[in-house]
Each structure stands twice: as structure tokens, then as C-alpha cells.
């Protein structure tokens, strides 16, 4: 199992990421450095958490389902999270929801998300031999969740709608820093659990029967991996809202740059690339071009192009 030399892409991506972070922290800073660094550092930490959770959840999801087109967000996992959030506001009322406090909200939403994602996975994705069916099911579910949550949005009181509205659009320049530390801790735990499984993920990527033949309890491992994916998606959606195509962009870049199938390389590389793209474009748009709202649009646009390219190229596997 000797792969091609793998250190080079990791080192390059690491340098690019460090450069992007450095620029993000220092570019155009005026006044008290202590304040600037603390303020921007918190934002940077949030971006890094989001970048990592998007990258890892996408790569792991694609490995388990055995495809390179569908991602958790195209599949509507983030829409599911928003649906759960809207449903909570709907049932508890805006005041009741607010009374829970951000952390408890996040906890409840993540728990519900975990249950829903596992049920969905058990019902639909287990037999993922048929890629066409998988992609179609995924996209249909994505639309279903988005439509259900917009239906609920119409049903609830306008003042309560204001509570959910803020959460329904991707916003990289106003990340939810209240949740930052609990999100960072959650992501770290998920990352550690997945990193321990990287050799098993390599085997799972070979397909269900081959994996079972090699002694990996495929169904159990796939369920666990999907649970971790659901938690990671909850983290990124809670912090910045839904991003549909960013994960796809990152996974396509990582697979192309890594030149290996080893998750021990693929996963960290994807996180570095993801962080470089996110922090880099945030720096360019916020500091250089002073266009604060367009980051999400541009990243989604790029990701959408990658999606089209993948579909047209037929690089389904």
C-alpha cells in the first residue's frame, strides 16, 4: 500500500493556509494590535472550525456513499438542520426558543439532527450501489427539506420568523461567535474520532462487500461515520448557515491535489485547502475589496461550477 509521495501537497497547502491566516489577521489593521488580533482571532477561529467541519464531513460522506458528486449539503443535511431549528421555533414559540439559550439550542438541534440523519441514512443510503438513484434521492430530499422549512417560515408569526431568518442564509462575515468554543470542541472530538478511523475509511472506500471481506463491520462503521458527519454539518450550519457547494469544491480540490486514496492524507489536506479558500476569500473580499456580503456568493458560484464540471465529466466515482 505505498502511495505516491504525499508530504508535498500537505506542506504546500499548510503554507498557503498559514499565509491566508496571517493576511487575514494583519491586513489593513489600524489601532490597538491587541484588540485587533483578539477580535480577528476569534473570527479566524470560527472560520477554521467551519472549514474543517465542511471538509471532513464532505470527504467522509463521499467515502461512505461511494461517490464524488453528492455532499451532505447537496443532500440537504444543512437544510435538515434549519428545518429542525424552524420546527423548534414553531413549537416552542420565539420567546420559548430564545429562553433555551444558544448552547442548549445547539445541543437539542444537533441531537435531533443526529437522529434524523441516521434514520435517513438507514432508509435510503445504505444500498448505495446505484449512484443515479442516490444522487436523485439526495437532491429530492434537499429540496423537500428546504421547502418544508420555508412552509414553516410562512406559518409562524412574523416576529418569530425574524428569529429563524437570520440563520437561514450563509454569512461568513458575521459568524456566530457565542457558539464558537462549544463548536470548536465538538469539531475537535469528531475530527479525533474520524482520524482514528482513517485506515478503516480507506477500506470502506473499496465498497461494502470488499470491506466486509477485509473484516470491517461495514454497516456499523458507516453508521458511526454518518453520525459524525451529521454532527459536523450541525456545527458548520450553526456557525455560518447553509453552504451548498463549498464542500464539493473542497473535496474536488483535495482529491485532485492529494493524488492518494489514504484518508490519513486526504482529510488533513482537505481541511487545509478548505481553510485556505475560506480565509483567503474572506480576506480578499473583506479587506481588499470591501465587499462584505459577496464571499458566500463567490464560493457558492465556484462550487456550483465544480459541480457542473463533475456532472459533465461523469467523474461519478
Amino acid at each position: 500500500m505505498r502511495g505516491p509521495p504525499v508530504a508535498k501537497p500537505l506542506v504546500l497547502a499548510g503554507l498557503a493556509c498559514a499565509l491566508a491566516c496571517g493576511l487575514f489577521l494583519t491586513l489593513g489593521a489600524r489601532g490597538d494590535w491587541g484588540f485587533v488580533l483578539a477580535f480577528r482571532g476569534q473570527k479566524l477561529a470560527a472560520l477554521l472550525v467551519v472549514a474543517t467541519s465542511v471538509a471532513w464531513s464532505t470527504i467522509v460522506f463521499q467515502t461512505v456513499t461511494g461517490n464524488r458528486i453528492l455532499t451532505p449539503s447537496i443532500m440537504g443535511f444543512d437544510a435538515l438542520y434549519l428545518l429542525i431549528q424552524t420546527a423548534l421555533v414553531f413549537t416552542l414559540g420565539g420567546v420559548g426558543f430564545a429562553a433555551l439559550g444558544q448552547r442548549l439550542q445547539f445541543g437539542i438541534e444537533t441531537a435531533l439532527m443526529l437522529g434524523a440523519a441516521l434514520a435517513l441514512f438507514a432508509a435510503l443510503l445504505r444500498r448505495s450501489d446505484d449512484l443515479g438513484r442516490l444522487v436523485l434521492t439526495g437532491i429530492v430530499f434537499g429540496i423537500l427539506f428546504r421547502s418544508l422549512s420555508s412552509l414553516l417560515n410562512r406559518l409562524i408569526d412574523p416576529s418569530e420568523f425574524a428569529v429563524v431568518q437570520a440563520a437561514s442564509f450563509a454569512r461568513f462575515n458575521a459568524v456566530n461567535t457565542d457558539l464558537l468554543w462549544i463548536a470548536a470542541a465538538t469539531t475537535t472530538v469528531c475530527v479525533a474520532l474520524l482520524a482514528r478511523r482513517s485506515a478503516r475509511l480507506d477500506v470502506i472506500a473499496l465498497g461494502r462487500e470488499t470491506a466486509i471481506g477485509l473484516g470491517v463491520d461495514h454497516d456499523r462503521e458507516a453508521r458511526r461515520a454518518m453520525a459524525l458527519v451529521a454532527v459536523l454539518v450541525s456545527v458548520s450550519t450553526a456557525l455560518v448557515g447553509p453552504v451548498v457547494f463549498f464542500g464539493l469544491l473542497v473535496s474536488a480540490l483535495a482529491h485532485a491535489a492529494a493524488g492518494t486514496w489514504r484518508h490519513a492524507v486526504l482529510l488533513p489536506l482537505a481541511a487545509l485547502i478548505s481553510a485556505t479558500v475560506l480565509v483567503g476569500s474572506q480576506t480578499i473580499f473583506e479587506r481588499v475589496l470591501a465587499l462584505e456580503t459577496s464571499v458566500a456568493v463567490v464560493i457558492e458560484g465556484l462550487g456550483g461550477l465544480v459541480f457542473l464540471a463533475l456532472v459533465l465529466k461523469g467523474a461519478a466515482r
Binding site: M1, R2, S198, A199, R200, D202, V203, L206, T210, L214, G215, V216
Partner: peptide
């Protein structure tokens, strides 16, 4: 090489 996975875990 994957054939050796059961013996040496990757």
C-alpha cells in the same frame, strides 16, 4: 496490499 489489512490494519 489491502489484502493484508485484516492482519496489519493498514
Amino acid at each position: 496490499g489491502f489484502g493484508r489489512y485484516p492482519h496489519s490494519g493498514g
